[in-house]
Write a protein that binds this DNA or RNA. Structure first.
Length: 149
DNA sequence: GCCAACGTTGGC
DNA sequence: GCCAACGTTGGC
């Protein structure tokens, strides 16, 4: 059982969209580190902090959980889509995604509040220059955040 | 819109 | 393998 933080731009897909849909395929990740977390480490039932990025109020907006193991991301094969990868083949797919399911919406914990918490000083998402859209969360960090909702 | 930080690409 | 150029991310 691991814990993760997954970023999404709410203008693209928000916690409210996930509440409506119940679950969603996390397609479109085109970063190798983030891909490897999904493909190699995620297990069904892992906890997910759903983070809103690139918006007026960036921060943690809800809870989700990993609903499936990773499988090849279908969008890499769609030549007319923006996630098309000409180097990917069905025999040798390059990109993978898990599916994530809704747990609950929480109060929004703003980025500034995360930064202010000494308990979260080493959190990956807060590291300088961090841009990864999927990052592991330590159990201690997860437990601390659960108490902030 | 700005800019720092980072990842990827491609020439050599 | 190096590294400059470029594109992207994401907070402010």
């Amino acid at each position: 059982m691991r814990y993760w933080l997954m970023k999404s731009e709410p203008s693209e897909y928000s916690i409210d969209d996930l509440a409506r849909d119940g679950s969603v395929a996390w397609f479109g990740v085109r970063n190798y580190q983030a891909r490897n977390f999904m493909r190699d480490q995620m297990q069904v039932g892992d906890g997910v902090l759903f983070y809103h990025s690139t918006c007026a109020e960036p921060g943690i907006a809800g809870l989700a959980e990993v609903a499936t193991l990773a499988y090849p991301d279908a969008t890499q094969f769609d030549a007319s889509g923006k996630y098309f990868d000409p180097k990917a083949t069905t025999d040798s797919p390059r990109w993978f995604n898990v599916e994530v399911k809704f747990v609950r919406k929480t109060r929004l914990i703003p980025l500034a509040e995360l930064r202010d918490a000494p308990e979260l000083a080493t959190m990956r998402i807060l590291a300088k220059g961090n841009r990864l859209s999927i990052t592991p969360v330590d159990p201690d960090e997860w437990n601390f955040i659960q108490r902030q909702f």
